[in-house]
Each structure stands twice: as C-alpha cells, then as structure tokens.
Amino acid sequence: GRYNISYTITDEQGRLAMSFYDNLYIAGGSGKEMEKQKVEYVPTDTLTIIPNATNYQPDDTCELLILAPFSPANGLVIFDCEGEISQPIQFQIKPEKDSTTVEFKISKDWIPGFTVRVELTGSIPRETETVNYSNRPAIATGTVSLEVSRDLYKLNVLVNTNETNKTYIPSSIIHIDVNVTQHIDKVPVDKAEVCLIVVDEAILSLTDHKLTNPLEIFYPNRPANTTEYHGRNRCLLFNMQDIEQFKKDLQQKQGENVRFAPHRMRCMKNKYNLTMPMAYSSRSLHGAGGGEPKIAVRSNFNPLACWVPSSITNSSGHVSFEFKLPDNLTRYRVWAIATNEKQKGLGEME
C-alpha cells in the first residue's frame, strides 16, 4: 500500500530535526490484499509472430511478420538457442501501423532449432473519458519456435547384401555391404567410420529396443533457456484522482526531486553440459570345435550375431563385412552407424 512517513532526530544537545517522505508505495501482498486496495499494474499484452516457414535450412532468409497490439512502439528481436543469445535486432512500429516485417539469416549454429523472443514497448491512451492526459506505458511480448534442418550434418547409410535369396541356413557365411553418402548432394563419403550391429529380432521385440539415430543424440533439440525480467509491468497505474492529488502534493513541496529510474530487462543464462555416452557391448561368437559330427547339432544361440565397432569406408564410400550366423532359427536386424568429424547417419536392414 501507500504510506506517508515522517521521523524526528535528536542530537546530543537535544536539538530536533524532522524529515518526511510522502507517497511511499510498498509492493507485494497477496492477491486478495491487492484487489482490496485496488492496486493495478501496467498489463503485459501479447503480440503475434508469424514466420514465413516452419522449417529452414542454414543461410535461408527468415521473415517474421510481427502484429503489434499498439503503435507507435520500439521493439527488440532476441534469438535464444539453449541459453545462447545472438545479436538482437531492433525495429519500430510506425504510427497508425499495426505490423512490421523483420528479416534475418538462419545460422548453422542454430541447428536443430531456436526460439525467437520479441519485446515491444510503447504507450497507449488511458482508459478514461477525460482528455488532455498523457498516455500510460505499454508492453507486449511474444515467442515462436523455429526448426533448422539437420540435413547439413546427415549421412545416408545404405545397408544391403549381395545374396539374392535372403533366407539363410544356420551357421552360414553372410556378406554385408554398406555405402555412405552425403545427404544433400549424394557424394560418397571417404574415410567414414562405420559400426555394424546384427541382432536377433526376437530379443529386440521382447525388450522393444530401438536404436536411436546418432544425429538426434549429437544434435538434440535445443529449448529456450533464458529467464526474462521486466520492470515496466511492475509500474503502478494511478487513477485520475490520484494523479491530481499527486500534482498538488508536488506543488506544495519545494526542493524535492522526484526521480524515476529506468527499468531494463535482464536475461540470465543457465548453461549445462549435455553428456550422452554411447556404449556397445559384444559377446564373442562361439563356433563348433573338434571333428565334424555326423549330425550337425546347433549349439551357438548368441542373440548378437555380429558386432564390428569400427571399419573405414574407401573413396567410394563403401565398406564390406563378412561374418558367420549363429544357429538360431530367427530373423535378424542389421544396423550400420556411420560418422565422421561432424556428420552422423544410421541405416538398417532386416
């Protein structure tokens, strides 16, 4: 609420000195207390942001149509990519206009997405029939999330076998070919590292296991990670009677300076390190030992038919694998994970 404070000071010789502070407002209190005292702050309006697309490629031009609830106004466009704030863009809403367009280039550093936050400040007429009164402050905010394609870091991985008949007998020798190309221009990738995994489909069905594309692990979705603070929406709105009384009080006082401190928005950034280790375990393949029996007895039921942790592609983006199947009567799923310094890819075959 509002308070008028006066206080008296007595020195060692008994002399009095009096001072006062009028119209001190103490913020806070519960919602009921604020409603009882008819406390009203500057409201925060919502503005609308309409992008010209929902998904972008790096170096594309993004156009944002900003619909403002008031004009004229000054605005700021902030790019938030997991707490990393890029250079903001300033813009203006001209008088008697209700919208404007802001253009900017999409950076590859924003892959796979970022958040656009728009702040708008201005003034609007007070809700009163009395004329010749100054406008009250106004503020509006809005956000929109935009996606940036991962295609720049994506590898195409094609897994195939030379055999025309894909029904095999237990303990047979299998040949797997893997071809790695760029996703955008289909150029073969030389010296790409390929990991091959062949697993029993029955085990995967029991555990409902699915291998995550490494592209989504190394380039995960990046949400907004900043906290915004506004001072204008904590400004107290006076009614007309309060304004007239306030003017009279100011005229009665001499030598009193009323200072208004400007409010600024601050963004606090929280960084965290994302650690996503990938680990693969293997079990050795056990072949039959000793002499060949008259009746072949199935003994190797290893669900992991093959695991090659690292193999390098040639200049044609090709690498071949050869392994012996276990004795299981089942279906197998073949996964091939390819990677180089920045690009990742996943291919599979049943």
Rank of each mutant, 00 (worst) to 15 (best):
K342T: 08
A140I: 01
P51T: 09
F91T: 01
I174A: 06
S282V: 00
F114A: 06
G29N: 11
Q245I: 09
A27G: 04
R298H: 15
R126M: 10
Q182F: 02
I176G: 03
D109K: 01
L304R: 09
S6C: 13
V116R: 12
P51S: 10
D190K: 14
L237P: 05
T143F: 04
T128I: 07
G1R: 14
R136Y: 10
N4T: 12
M349E: 13
E228Q: 07
R232D: 05
F91P: 11
D60Q: 08
T130P: 01
Y7G: 07
T330M: 03
A338D: 05
K253Y: 06
R126K: 15
W307Y: 15
H209W: 13
D22A: 04
P58N: 00
T181I: 01
L346P: 00
M240I: 14
Q241I: 02
F218I: 07
Y56V: 00
Q90K: 12
V148M: 02
L215T: 05
Y272A: 14
T164H: 03
F20T: 03
T143A: 15
A279H: 10
F20H: 13
R232W: 03
Y272I: 10
Y133C: 08
Y229S: 14
K94Y: 11
P69C: 08
P326F: 01
E256F: 13
T330A: 03
N257L: 15
V258G: 11
F70T: 13
C195E: 13
L204F: 01
S172Y: 08
V144Q: 04
S310F: 08
K247Y: 07
G122V: 02
P220L: 05
W335I: 00
C195D: 07
G317A: 09
E341H: 05
L274Q: 15
W307P: 07
T141N: 13
Q87C: 05
P303F: 05
R333E: 01
C306D: 08
E33P: 02
G317N: 00
G113P: 07
I176M: 14
T130W: 11
E201H: 15
V319E: 00
T8N: 09
L196Y: 11
V180F: 01
T115C: 06
S149L: 02
K253Q: 15
N302P: 02
L274V: 10
R117I: 11
H318I: 02
D327A: 10
V157W: 00
G83H: 09
A27L: 10
Q92C: 01
R259L: 15
N132M: 11
N52D: 15
I78C: 12
G345A: 04
K210A: 04
N162L: 07
T61W: 10
D177E: 14
Q87W: 03
D98C: 07
P309L: 06
L24G: 04
E256I: 12
Y168N: 10
L76A: 04
P220N: 06
T121Q: 12
S282W: 14
V102G: 09
M240K: 13
Y153A: 00
S149P: 04
E147A: 11
K38W: 02
T128Q: 10
R222M: 14
M278W: 06
P262T: 15
P43S: 06
N213W: 00
G122Y: 02
V102Q: 08
T207G: 06
I66A: 02
F91W: 06
Y219V: 02
Q57A: 04
A27Q: 12
Q57C: 06
N135S: 15
A73S: 10
P72Q: 04
D151Y: 05
M265E: 12
